[in-house]
Amino acid sequence: MASYPVRIFRFYRDGFRSMTVGKTLWKIIFLKLFIMFAVLKLFFFPDFLSTRFSTDEQRADYVMEQITAPARNSN
């Protein structure tokens, strides 16, 4: 009788091996995750505040400036 970790490993291994439509789905999932994290997140969706400021204090100051800017309260 194999140990629990080995049985769990075999469970997942055999499960993945016996997939039919699942193989296509996994390809789609990986492709999607690659596009999302390696392309979109990296090149098109950097975190606005994290990339511009290094401390939370600076971020808070910036947001405070933004929400109290005179043009937003001029009317």
Binding site: F45, D47, F48, L49, S50
Partner: peptide, 21 residues
């Protein structure tokens, strides 16, 4: 489930980039 999984994460990307305030 497989096609839809993680599509919601893009909303979180948008929060950080477009809606930072």
């Amino acid at each position: 489930f497989a096609i839809g999984v993680a599509t919601g994460i893009i909303l979180e990307f948008e929060f950080g980039t477009n809606w930072s305030n």
